[in-house]
Simulated assay, not measured.
Amino acid sequence: MQARRKAVIKLAGEQLLLLALTFMMLYPLLWMVAGSFKDNGTIFTTAHSLLPNRLDFSSYIEGWKGFGGVTFATFFLNSTIITLLSTFGSVASSALIAYGFARIRFRWKKVWFVCMMLTMMLPFEIIMVPQYVMFNWFGWIDTYWPLILPTLFGTPFFIFLIMQFIRTLPHEMDEAAKIDGCGKFAIFSRIIVPLIVPAMMTCAIFSFYWRWDDFMGPLLYLNKPQLYPVSLGLKMFSDPDSITNWSALFAMSTLSVVPVFVVFFLFQRYIVEGISTSGLKG
């Protein structure tokens, strides 16, 4: 009986500790959500309280109006276009490249794989200037091409993740498909792709997060407010030369994290399944 009581006390202590750590991690987000319902002049004077005196939705209405005739609906639409196209391009191209590395024999395969893995160590700041010069020479500034086109050539982290997943699949399936007359692309599209959906969904979720939150890329290549994604739209609320509308900024920031939470809660099982299975072999 005493042992059971100790186990219950230990479990309760662990749960309380986890709840305290969870609250500490979520506190900045909760503070931002609470600030979105406060008056702009009382956000920092009542910063110690997460509960506003009254629910004021005027900051959401004011923030949604945007700037210069460009509403926040435009910013959300731009972010959606960039995120969906770049995510699809990144996952599809990475899956195809991963299949090549995992299943197809070709000359200098290991050398190309090492070169691909080395690119994961390159910070974005190193390739930022050469990329900008190249895209400027193409005349693609103030377009979405610099943000979408590079994703069509694969993402090293996704290639490695999907390749490890493909290595867990038996080669006998490929041999059986070859006997039935399937070529390499048919094997990939009909046999491999349906089996690597968890890994591809994991990559899609990560890509969605990265592209939705991307700030530096749009800041470099987009100059027209009509083309701004949400990340640059939020920046427009902060004006160092005048008064920053913090309540509207927090309101639109709160709305901007809603798609991220929705995607996470709908597809979180794919994250665990895709990452855990990718490390079983190879």
Rank of each mutant, 00 (worst) to 15 (best):
Y99N: 07
C182Y: 11
M121T: 12
V70S: 10
F75N: 15
A20T: 06
L11T: 06
G183V: 03
G181K: 06
L55Y: 01
P52K: 01
R269Q: 12
P52Q: 03
M121D: 07
L55T: 00
D142A: 05
T80L: 15
L26I: 08
G183I: 02
N223M: 09
P170V: 07
L122C: 03
V70N: 12
F188G: 04
P28F: 12
L11I: 05
W112M: 14
L96T: 05
Y228W: 12
S253T: 12
M128T: 07
V230D: 10
L84Y: 07
S59I: 00
F44M: 11
L21I: 11
P229I: 08
K281F: 12
T119N: 10
Y27L: 13
P150D: 00
I166A: 06
A47K: 08
F57H: 00
F106T: 07
L255F: 13
T71I: 09
I159W: 09
T42E: 13
I141T: 14
P170T: 08
P52V: 03
R103Y: 07
L232R: 03
L234C: 10
I9E: 15
A73K: 13
L18V: 02
S58M: 00
I127W: 00
N78Q: 13
S207G: 11
L232V: 06
R5N: 14
S189V: 04
L85Y: 10
I61C: 01
A102W: 05
G279V: 09
I187E: 07
M163S: 13
D214H: 05
P52W: 02
A92C: 09
F267G: 06
A7R: 15
A95H: 03
A177M: 00
M173K: 02
L21D: 02
L266E: 06
R167D: 14
G274P: 12
S36R: 00
W145H: 08
P146R: 01
G183N: 07
L96P: 00
A177P: 03
F267I: 05
L255A: 11
L30C: 08
L149F: 10
S86D: 05
L232D: 07
T87W: 04
R167A: 11
L266M: 11
F264G: 06
A95G: 08
I9Q: 14
A199N: 12
I205T: 05
Y144V: 01
M120S: 09
I148L: 01
L234T: 07
L149E: 01
D56H: 04
F67C: 10
G41T: 11
Y60W: 02
G181P: 11
Q226I: 02
L255K: 04
W212Y: 05
R269I: 06
T42D: 12
F135R: 04
K65I: 06
L232G: 04
I148Y: 00
A73T: 15
L220M: 14
